[in-house]
Design a protein around this nucleic acid. Structure first.
Length: 472
RNA sequence: GCUUGCGUGGUGUAGUGGCCCAUCAUAAAGGAUUCUCAUUCCUUUGACCCGGGUUCGAAUCCCGGCGCGAGCACCA
């Protein structure tokens, strides 16, 4: 990661500002990880800010406020330094709007959205643009007290109708939302306000108020930077240093939008935000993807403006290296075939952690003289060895233990004992969950433990009878 | 259409005029170690979008083309 421009040790303030209309998704992790990393590197601060100023198009999800703080903390390995909620600070934005109107930096526009769109294309000022501060203040009061209804008036920033970039021409800063009919989802806010700032105004003012020094965000917000810089000129402020990253697509996931996921969850298509098919932080976490792996992943992608498509294998590779040494080995026998084992000892001792044999062992009870093996492994007539037990020969449908020591280089199979529990291994593939039935070796690991199923891959224990596959 | 931004191996990434017959990671193939088809280690394959120009010298600078993306919402 490159150095930040104009960064002074101990004086860097960054922020990550999601819309709490759902919990964090995979892509959000980038904002948290990168901003958090820089805050740490320069001994600065990371602000988590909820940009929840829309009650109509993307209404906030009440639970998201707490879940996002919790998820961000998990990802960072520490809590954000400050948490700011935009909907708590509406009066502050009002003050700045009034200052802008009084200083002639903006005006109240009563043109319809469609009408203004035409004026913008034609580079023609609208009639409202000429109004003096007094008239603007009166219209502003009309917005506040309800004499204007939703859609009838908007506060615009005066930037210039002849700007070459149409996106910047007298952009809208605050609008009216009918919060009586559709209250803000936070009960403490509810129907208190009817005039709400739009992202560019709210974000710009708040960045200044919070002393943000550096903004790192998606390049889709490039024009936002330009818009906001024009607003900063009105106020005589200096805009923070800004960097951008491009779009990231994950090959295995299509395009997921927060609102679409929310609708699908409500419709019952998915079991919740942590459904393993979804690209949310909650789902990845439930699948056993470690915060450290996510951090390594995003740091490796760094902050190019290129639009990239990455395979999940890259993330999995990071996760394997984080998890492997501490993943307890366990056998999961799919399509199990019971076979009598002659000559068996009373008990077998298998390796739990290959890198650290002292740490723990697995003891399996062989007193019943029977083992379970995968049917597929039995297709091959070649002799084999039961891992950590001994070489066997197959005779009359039964196994004979012939040697505890390895006598040759025959293949080695995983196996378990008849007291293994019936279990289901959930594997996500192609956006579908496949339930693989099998028998799971007896163990005393808690739910949530990350294990490596021998010859299969890494998985997480959900409960006594369910496992969720992480990756190979 | 207007306005922006980006183009290095399969996928990501380093590289800001000579240290680059281009870095690292990942993927793939092969091999070694290993009582797992895991881990670890080694090897191989493989890239500077195209065309001009500037220069003794360009992945790096300039121009043009092509390709891909984003903004032009009273969403964030």
């Amino acid at each position: 990661m490159p150095e930040l421009r104009e960064a002074q040790q101990g004086k860097v303030v960054l922020r990550f500002a999601p819309n709490p209309n759902g919990p964090l998704s995979f892509g959000h992790a980038r904002g948290i990880v990168i901003n958090g990393q820089y805050a740490e590197r320069y001994g600065g601060e990371l602000i988590l800010r909820f940009d929840d100023t829309d009650t109509v198009v993307k209404p906030p999800l009440p639970e998201a406020y707490s879940s996002i703080v919790e998820e961000a903390t998990w990802l960072l390995g520490r809590a954000p330094d400050r948490v700011v909620i935009a909907s708590d600070r509406i009066p502050v934005y009002y003050e700045h709007a009034e200052r802008m109107l009084q200083g002639g930096g903006g005006y109240v526009c009563t043109c319809s959205a469609e009408a203004f769109r035409e004026l913008r294309v034609a580079q023609t000022p609208c009639p409202c643009r000429d109004a003096d501060a007094e008239i603007n203040m009166e219209r502003w009061r009309m917005m506040l007290d309800g004499r204007f209804a939703q859609g009838e008036a908007v506060v615009r920033v005066r930037t210039g109708m002849d700007l070459p970039n149409p996106a910047l021409r007298d952009w809208p800063a605050l609008r009216i939302q009918d919060t009586t009919a559709a209250p803000h989802p936070r009960p403490e806010v509810g129907s208190t306000y009817r005039v709400w700032p739009l992202l560019d105004f709210q974000s710009a003012v708040e960045d200044h108020l919070q002393g943000v020094t550096h903004i790192i965000r998606g390049k889709d917000l490039m024009d936002s930077t330009r818009k906001q810089s024009l607003l900063y000129e009105h106020f005589g402020w200096t805009y923070p240093e800004t960097m951008y990253w491009g779009r990231v697509k994950v090959h295995e996931w299509g395009g997921f939008s927060t609102s679409a996921m929310r609708a699908d969850i409500e419709a019952g298509t998915y079991e919740g935000w942590d459904d393993p098919r979804l690209p949310t932080i909650a789902a990845l976490r439930r699948r056993g993807i470690q915060a450290e792996a996510l951090r390594a992943f995003w740091l490796e992608l760094a902050i190019t403006q290129k639009d990239i498509a990455v395979p999940l294998a890259t993330l999995y590779s990071h996760n394997t290296s984080v998890v492997d040494a501490n993943a307890h080995r366990l056998a999961f026998v799919r399509d199990p075939v019971p076979l009598t084992l002659h000559n068996a000892p009373e008990e077998a001792t298998l390796v739990a952690f290959p890198d650290d044999a002292e740490r723990d062992v697995r003891r399996l009870d062989l007193s019943r003289g029977e083992v379970l093996i995968e049917a597929e492994d039995l297709q091959d007539p070649a002799p084999f060895r039961l891992k950590d037990l001994g070489d066997v020969e197959k005779e009359d449908g039964a196994l004979h233990l012939t040697s505890l020591e390895r006598s040759d280089s025959r293949r080695i199979l995983h196996w378990t004992t008849p007291d293994a529990t019936e279990a289901v291994l959930m594997v996500v593939n192609d956006g579908h969950i496949h339930n693989v039935k099998g028998r799971l070796e007896p163990h005393d690991l808690p739910s949530g433990a990350v294990v490596q199923l021998e010859r299969i891959g890494y998985a997480i224990l959900l409960d006594d009878h369910r496992l969720l596959m992480m990756h190979e």
